[in-house]
């Protein structure tokens, strides 16, 4: 019988600990598929964050080096500068990358550090129980923005990907979602493009992925997927934000 679907080689046979309906498992799988298809499992190094994906090293079958909260871009900088011929990616949540790790991320992008960041945006601090994140949208209820995020009290959400697109050192930035089969395929293509930009030595690449968190959004998985389409994308529009991969020559 012909095998048409199986676990990617770059994903270990450990059951995911993620909640039902969470986007992390899908994103892990898609990254694993891209690593397999590009044939880079043996040269890829991942940097997991502090947050829901802190245990990512149990799932990815590539070398992984843990970073503390927000410092993945700095750890990845050290790794990639020491091993410039390896493929380095960070895997970070919204709190990790857009609050505590803002400085590290913006400067890595500005230096044009040649690694890829997977930025999972679900608008809450998931692991700590659903507190307000830097990407929590106005009006969204969290445990620390009761009654909904208010601009006067809580400030505005941060459009990190748009900010990083301004940086001269970034090569490829796209925002996608994993709330439907077609969006998952687009996410996979975006991750592949980002990895390819790195393989060509073009500089910093990032894929921001809008990802459902039914547990902390207090929704069913189906409602959470609809909420991304109906509410979240209005604040974080999907699509390519920056792409200079066509203009730039390979640096390797």
């Amino acid at each position: 019988m012909k095998k048409v679907f199986s676990r990617p080689k770059s994903i270990k046979k450990n059951p995911f600990h993620y909640c039902p309906g969470c986007g992390h498992s899908i994103i892990h799988r898609v990254i694993g598929e891209v690593i397999d298809e590009l044939g880079i499992q043996e040269i890829t190094i991942g940097v997991p964050p502090a947050g829901c994906a802190v245990l990512a090293y149990f799932y990815f079958d590539v070398d992984m080096g843990e970073a503390s909260h927000g410092r993945a871009a700095a750890v990845a900088t050290g790794l990639k500068r020491a091993l410039p011929d390896r493929i380095v990616f960070t895997y970070q949540g919204d709190g990790d990358i857009a609050a505590i790790g803002t400085a590290e991320t913006i400067h890595a992008a500005s230096r044009g550090e040649n690694f890829t960041t997977i930025f999972v945006n679900n608008g809450v601090y998931g692991m700590t129980g659903g507190q307000m994140a830097p990407t929590t949208i106005l009006g969204q209820n969290t445990t620390t923005s009761p009654g909904g995020r208010k601009e006067r009290r809580d400030g505005f959400p941060i459009p990190l990907s748009e900010m990083l697109a301004v940086a001269k050192g970034s090569a490829y930035i796209e925002r996608t979602a994993v709330n439907s089969p077609s969006n998952i395929l687009k996410t996979k293509r975006a991750i592949e493009k980002a990895f390819r930009a790195q393989m060509r030595g073009l500089g910093f690449s990032l894929v921001e992925i809008l990802s459902p968190c039914p547990t902390n959004w207090k929704m069913s998985p189906v409602e959470a997927c609809h909420w991304i389409d109906e509410v979240m994308v209005k604040h974080f529009p999907l699509g390519v934000i920056k792409d200079i991969t066509g203009e730039k020559k390979d640096v390797n």
Binding site: V47, G65, A67, S68, R71, A73, A74, V75, A76, T77, G78, L79, K80, R81, A82, L83, A103, E104, H107
Partner: peptide, 14 residues
């Protein structure tokens, strides 16, 4: 903070 975490990355790489 960034510099010490770059140290961590380069040290992981050996």
């Amino acid at each position: 903070i960034a510099s010490i975490h770059m140290v961590i990355g380069a040290s992981m790489a050996g």
